[in-house]
Design a protein around this nucleic acid. Sequence first.
RNA 1: GGGUGAUUAGCUCAGUGGUAGAGCGCUUCGUUCACAUCGAAGAUGUCGGGAGUUCGAAUCUCUCAUCACCCA
Length: 1031
Amino acid sequence: MTLPKSFDAAEAEPRIYAEWEGSNAFAAGANAQRDETFSIVIPPPNVTGSLHMGHAFNNTLQDILIRWHRMRGFDTLWQPGTDHAGIATQMVVERELAKSGRSRTDFSREDFLDLVWEQKRKSRGNIRSQLQRLGASCDWAREAFTMAGAPGDPEGAPGGQNFHDAVIRVFLELYEKGLIYRGKRLVNWDPHFETAISDLEVENLEVDGFMWHFKYPLANGETYTYVERDADGNVVLEEERDYISIATTRPETMLGDGAVAVHPSDARYAPIVGKLCEIPVGPREHRRLIPIITDDYPDPDFGSGAVKITGAHDFNDYAVARRAGIPCYRLMDTRARMRDDGDAYAEAAMRAQEIVSGLKLSDAEIDAINLVPDELRGLDRFEARERVVEAITEEGLAVMTTDEEGNAVPLVERKKIMAPYGDRSKVVIEPMLTDQWFVDAEKIVGPAIEAVKTGETTILPESDRKVYFHWLENIEPWCISRQLWWGHRMPVWYGFDLAREGFRDDEGDGALDPVEVGRLLSHQHLLRGEERHHAAHDFESVRRQFDDVLAGLPTPLNHARVVEVADREAALHTIAESLAEYSVSQDPTHLVYPVWQDPDVMDTWFSSGIWPIGTLGWPEDTPELRKYFPTSVLITGFDIIFFWVARMMMMQYAIVGERPFDTVYVHALVRDEQGKKMSKSLGNVLDPIDLIDEFGADAVRFTLAVLAAMGRDVKLSKDRIAGYRNFGTKLWNAARFAEMNGAVCGQDGVPEATAPVNRWILGETARVREEVDAALEAFRFNDAAAALYAFTWHRVCDWYVEFSKPLLQGEDEGLKAETQRVMGWVIDQCLILLHPFMPFITEELWDVLAERRKMLIHADWPQYQAADLADAAADAEMRWVIAVIEEVRSVRAQMHVPAGQYVPILATEIDAEGRRAWDRNAALIKRLARIDSLSEVESFPRGTATVALEGTTLGLPLEGLIDVAEEKARLEKTQAKLDKEIRGLSGRLSNPQFAANAPEEVVEEARENLAAREDERARVAEALSRLAEIG
RNA sequence: GGGUGAUUAGCUCAGUGGUAGAGCGCUUCGUUCACAUCGAAGAUGUCGGGAGUUCGAAUCUCUCAUCACCCA
């Protein structure tokens, strides 16, 4: 049976993939023939996501390494799975609900989560089947999910792998070691999703903005002399001022100012440091006064040099406020609207003023103060900004300047400002002071840095090490709580802190009297009070912790029974009711103590942070964990070095004390052919599945591999993919030729060869095998792919297949049989070596060409050495044969000899070696160069086109056909090229320093080279002078 | 502002001190029985500018310019 003319990828790919899967070819340990293991955990894509070019790239590289190791007999595991992508997945479901006018809050948390689980079930197969289209040979039976086994998971924990329990356990371990804490800190708040996000989920974009300049009047009408000097110290401005000028891009936050700061070295403001100034917004009768302080943060050369400090809405201000003990007043609610809660403005402002005068309040008490003037309450932050600007301007407290016509106008600079945007929501992020959970990253970062410094873990390319170090060495606390429903819920319960001051047992008699119980009933205290919390795997275990606390309280509280309620509000209600009942019944056994679970969930990256151990079964001591951990390689995009790689390093060390992987290979971005980032808005997105449909998975994979130069972006074009699709067809047709000519595939071992052409290709094959192994060993995917391309196309197809034709179709049966064996072997080697890159087409050919013991996916990777297979004499001979053919072809083309016409050829001065080479390869040369005979002559007849080669000069007698001018031009061009080379070589050789300093072999090579070039030059010169005679 | 990388053929890019390369594109020729998703031949470069180290620099150093990305 003859093969069809090309490979039908659409038909074959699913069929072949099914055969692999059906025979468990991807299973962990399949084809293992040695003890060494090789394992990769897949960077988990979002469960609701779909495959984009970056995934295709990333997984192609992983599959190449996995298949290569599996064929080499390593005990290999490629661990697949997806993550639950908190915000993204919740967003998908909410968007779906929005279509029918519903929202998340129309459902109970449990009901909503059921919808998300359903969505997860629907989307999960998506990315998996896309990876399968690509040919990814993951062990799908082990497919993991970062929320597997969480409450509500309808599938339970497949394979007994309960990722949820592992995540909770990690949280508790870190919590108990004091590495996770709860605190009120400034976080990035996403007003759209109403959740905190980490600083990595914020994109800073440059947008058009304004800088306003306002006057903050000094308290009690005080004045000072404001003096400005130039660089030489000369006074350029001197005036009496009763205010300090402040520049801001966010006037609405002035309402929450706690101070004005200037640099300690700034002489202009030295006279007023320590004095009070007035915030020029809000009702005049309740203007707040704030102190003027010094701090290193303000830049004296920027704006007025004075900065307003709004600790609750700006990260820099927050740092200043913390240093100086300035209160941070929160101005907005969870949707970034101006607060509309708490006391009226007049009372709030008064209370804030008391703090300036020395009143000490707790963070919670300060947070309860709402400093938004009544008329601005409930407004959107941007609307509030306009109103504030208007009010100040109206009052005449804007700094003025003159416009082109000389009118006085408020000074408002238009300028580019960096604004933070949520990477998912695309709305402006609001720094917000809230209670959140944090990982004390600084305490666990050490081993992660050390591991890369000592080389325990290698990061490639090396330049990415710096990025990694820079981030880790400046690490900030990691906010891991998210105000979402979809995710691992915090295993933390809260209860009122009844032991706090104010609930004291006045008499110390171990029992509370009615007055004291009545005090407990006061909601205000409970509302404003702090809670105590305990962390545990479940309510039952946390209850015991609360029991212990209650036991230490006075009667009747020590009798209270711990019950779980929905939230804080329910708890208030429950405890009030219970105490009221007690005050009537005086029966302590009916008292209940309500606790409620933290509603927040953990950052998705916290759970994917334990991906390497979690997927292998930790905390159980599984055989897989013992065998495949630490994993061998992580292949991932540079964009998640911080999000994921650095955190995995930290967390694996913190939990199991070991590196998660030996090597991290960081790849760059896939861009379009102009080098632009692929984005939906630009419309330049290439969908890998479309490309696979059009060109086949092998072509897409090979293209990505050959473009994967380390540390460089991949610029992808369809032309390029089409080119490598053609490469597949080329391979296919070489195999087709081999099959049609009785090539023997499926032999054991390397065939014996006597003919130079066969000996030559054995050596070439061994060389490319070494090259491919070396390149893959060094993660140089592009070098490996390029070497295979050049070998398969330019050595096997262009030369070896052509050379083989006269032998396979010739009379010499022995030579024919040898060539059939060598041809079959060479084709087999191409299939084996290309399989990691182009798995489908190679597997198909492997199957068609011979009966095999195993599928190609499990074929043995060769180990032969060029040192054993290469034959220098055969190499030299074939180089000469190729040179003869190329030169003759070149002359023919330039002299316009019809392509199909056979011509005689003449030789002068042919040496014995040349004669032998000719004789042995005459059939090949004659056929490939279209020559009918070779005769030796003393000298060429008139009208001969000459070819100068090492050891001989060949001539094509073209009497009457030759164009003298053209031939002269051709020879002169050759001569010029030779002259240039000779000049370079002799220049070097005549320099005594060269001989003295350069290595022996370099000098020797140059000398030989020069001799050969000079020999050729002499022949060309001779030909030219002969031509001159005719001319 | 800090950091990283880049600048090589028309385009996209390899190339870690020893005679400048690949793919695509372009020009000419070619339907001989593996392949027109092909074959043969060909053109195209002050390796961003400048300086230095070296017998020798696309490659190492410095500097300038331009671009890109990351972090403030």
